[in-house]
Structure formats: structure tokens, C-alpha cells
Nucleic acid binder design. Sequence first.
DNA 1: TCCGATTAATGGTACGATCATTTGATAAAC
DNA 2: GTTTATCAAATGATCGTACCATTAATCGGA
Lengths: 256, 256
Amino acid sequence: MHLTPFKPVTGNNLSEKVASRIEAAILSGAILPGNRLSSERELQNQFEVGRGAVREALKTLKQKGIIEIRKGVKGGVYVKKLEIDNASESLSLLLKQNKVPIADLVEFRDAVDETEVLLASIRGDKEEKKQLVEMAMQLSELNTLPAGPDIEQIKAIDREMNLLLAKMTKNFVFVWMKNTIQLSIGSYDSLLYESPKYRTQTIDNWINTAREIAAGEPLRALSLCSYHYVLLQSCLRDKQLEETGSKEVQEKKSHA
Amino acid sequence: MHLTPFKPVTGNNLSEKVASRIEAAILSGAILPGNRLSSERELQNQFEVGRGAVREALKTLKQKGIIEIRKGVKGGVYVKKLEIDNASESLSLLLKQNKVPIADLVEFRDAVDETEVLLASIRGDKEEKKQLVEMAMQLSELNTLPAGPDIEQIKAIDREMNLLLAKMTKNFVFVWMKNTIQLSIGSYDSLLYESPKYRTQTIDNWINTAREIAAGEPLRALSLCSYHYVLLQSCLRDKQLEETGSKEVQEKKSHA
DNA sequence: TCCGATTAATGGTACGATCATTTGATAAAC
DNA sequence: GTTTATCAAATGATCGTACCATTAATCGGA
């Protein structure tokens, strides 16, 4: 028999709660791709909800591309292997499932950012450029507070600067891409601000980059932007060294 | 009263048929963002299906982010304004809705392709490089057939070459991005092959690019890749000149 | 005029019934 | 014994009805 990893659910928006429960179970890896979850009637009993709610939840998950539904005996809900081809609708889903090595994402953002900096320094309004420099200076202030650096605030402004930079390109695709990547990479990027070693360097680099962009010096801004990634990769390497052997085994497993 | 732009639906997978009908009506622009579609019970009558089927269809569309559902009097299905912020889940949806000027997309792909070519020439296997060159030669052959060029086949191989190039980067994000962009930009890109003026130039450029990649000359490959976009933009400009004044009015309207 | 109660429209949920599809088992034919 | 045809059970797909909660318009009284 199956284990029943679900508990009853009550409340409003039932079908969405059911959907998020099932999705969580799948994304957490508790149920592996190709495995059968249950039939609709079984889920109905496990969650103690009506069958309509179950079916609506499954429709949502099917649209997301993470489950497959089969008819007949041995039918029911099956966890789908999420491949790049299936996921053309959703990059963020691929990222959530850790299907994408973080190094790949960093590398990609590097490529995009370089052009972004070029375009921003060419197309950005005067006001936008002014604002960018001001935000960079704010970073510096927040880093030299008497009570110590306000790291959360620094991260927030870093995020805003990134979005502003994308907006300055006047190109929707860059804005969209920045939004999506930021959601997934943000936590890694902010590592730079948690270590004192990198924080000051990163902020100084932001200030210089913002000034070159404001001055309309795209090529200088570009080389400074590249330095941001030198810092980030160095920082990530440091973190990796801290990790234990058991994590390495997990890594190999997930790559297989 | 409302018009009822739907006809009854019969057959299997009813809810998906209903969903695609509604989606088509929305994406075609027949129903504008912010407008109310109908209530569930109205849709049930219009499509002549059960209410469950309607609700399942709506769940799918809600998950896609193109509709919004409101409770109470004046509740029902409303077409959602698809903004960049909402759409972090789906770039292809933004593209389908023509929210993104094609020039933006071309520019973005240009930025990505440059790095892609660099990485491909550095990381590509020997076999992949060999295959790339062979495919480029195939393009040339297809262009000089006695019976005239086989344009459809040429487009198909162009597509395959693009995907191979992305694969050669050994970076999932580039592969995903190429897949997504290809779906939307493909039709524009293939304009290059429809005009005799550009077709031969584009193919020759592909051959040279493939050879430089195979030779491990990333910088030469890069400059050739850029030339592809010079050709594409020139070609798009030609097409735009052919368009009439009435289209220009539409353009301005959609930009407002 | 303004505020509160009423009412009607609508989504959310549940339950039950029927049909079509799929798989496995059983029986019949060779 | 093997193959083929038939049947049965599990399951998704769909429909219908009923009831509750929410929402906005309407109506009536202060």
C-alpha cells in the first residue's frame, strides 16, 4: 500500500491549498518523477475535501507541467519529469526545482548584464542616472553606519538598483529577465553583502559603475560590471569550500 | 447585454477545449484586458457543458495568469492585464500577447547569442563542432538545388543549428532561453531566408561562423555572429518600409 | 441626504450518478 | 500450451443539484 503523506485541509480556496500541498510534496523531492501519487478518489479521502476541489487542484498542477494524469486502471496522478522542453512556459519553475546549477545562472546573468550596462549608459535618462548614483551612495552610507552596516537594507537597495538598471535599457525583455533571475539568484547574490571581505568591495564597485554609467562611459562601466562577477564567483568559491563531503555526494546525485 | 462570442463545444477533454477557446478569444484581442467575460453559469450555457468543466478550464487559465476570478455580484471572469511583473512565470505568454516589441526581443537575443557563440566555441565537443559545420554546408546545398532553394528545409536546419549552438554552451539557461525565444522570434528570423537578397548572405555567414567556432576562434566567430544581426535588422527595416499607413496607426495605438 | 438592512448574483464546495477508457483477469478457441 | 476474445474493476471525465459565503446593488427609514 501507499503511504499517505497528506493531512486533511480546511479553509477557503481549498483547491489552491490542496494544489500547494501536493506541489510542495513534489518539489521537496518526497515523491520522485515517474511515481504515482494517488487516484482522485484517494486524494479526496486523504485531504477530506470534495472531488471537485481535487480536480481543480490537479488542473492547476497539470498546467504548471509538474504532474501528468492517466485514465483507467493504474491511472491517477503521476509526477512528471520536468525537462527543459516541457518548461518553456516557466523558467522560474526550473529554477525552483534546482534543475539549473547556480553557476549556469550566474554565467547567464553575467552575459545579460554586460549588454544591460551598455544599453543603460546609452539610453538611460538623466534622472535615472542621477538616481542610480544616489542609490549607490546610499549603499556606502548604510555600510558605514556607527551601529554597523544595515545588511538587509543594503540588499534591498541592491535589488532596486538592478531593476532600475534593467529599466534603463528601455527594453522589456531585459526587465522581465532581471525580474525572473532576481527571484532565484537573489539569495546567492546577497552572499556578497554578508561577508565583510566582499561587502565593501562590492559597494565600491557599484559606486564606480554607477558613475561611469552616469558619465556615459559604457566601456568603462562594462569592465566594472565584469568585476562584480569576479567578486561573486570568488565569494561562491569560498562558500563551496566551507561545505562538507556529504553535500558533495548530494551534488553528484542531483547531477546524475 | 453581452455578445456571446462562443459556440457550443463537444468532444473529449472538454475542459481543455473550453480553456483553449477562451484563451484564443483573449489572445486574439477580441476581449480587452479589464473586461468581464461572463459568469461561470453563463459560460456553462454558452458552451453547453457542465459547470465543473468550466471551472476546470478557468483554473487552467488562472494559472496561466491571463484571467482573474471575482466573487459576488458583478463577479465572474475578468481578463487580466498581463504585465511584466505578473508574468515572471511566463515569457512566452508575454511574447504571444505582443506585449514585447519585436525589436526588443531581437536586441536581447543578440546579447545572449554573443556570449553563446563564445561559450560554444570554447566548450563545444569536437563532434558537435563537426556537426555544426556539416549543417551549415547542408544549408548551402539546399540553397543551390537545381529545382530552386528548399526554404522550409533551410529554416528547419537553421533552427536546429541554433539549438545545437545553445547546447554547446553546456549551460541549461542558454538552452532554455533559446527554446523560448525561438518559438516567438522564429517567424521573424526566417524572413532572412525568404528574400533571395539576404538568403545567400545569411547562409554564407553561418558557414563562416560555424567554421570559426569549429576552429576554436571565439572572437572571429563573435564578429561574424554580430553580422547576422546586421542582416536581420536590415531585413526587418526593408519589411517595415513595405507596410502601409494604416499599420502605422495600429502601431501607435498599441504603444499607447 | 445618508446609513443600514435586504436581496440577488456569483464563486466555492460537496455529493452522487453515469459514461468512456484502460488494464488485468478469465474463459474460450485453436 | 498458446492465443484470442470477453468480462470486470479501477479510474478519469462529465453532468446535475444543492447549499454556503461573499459581494455589490437596492431599498427603506432616520
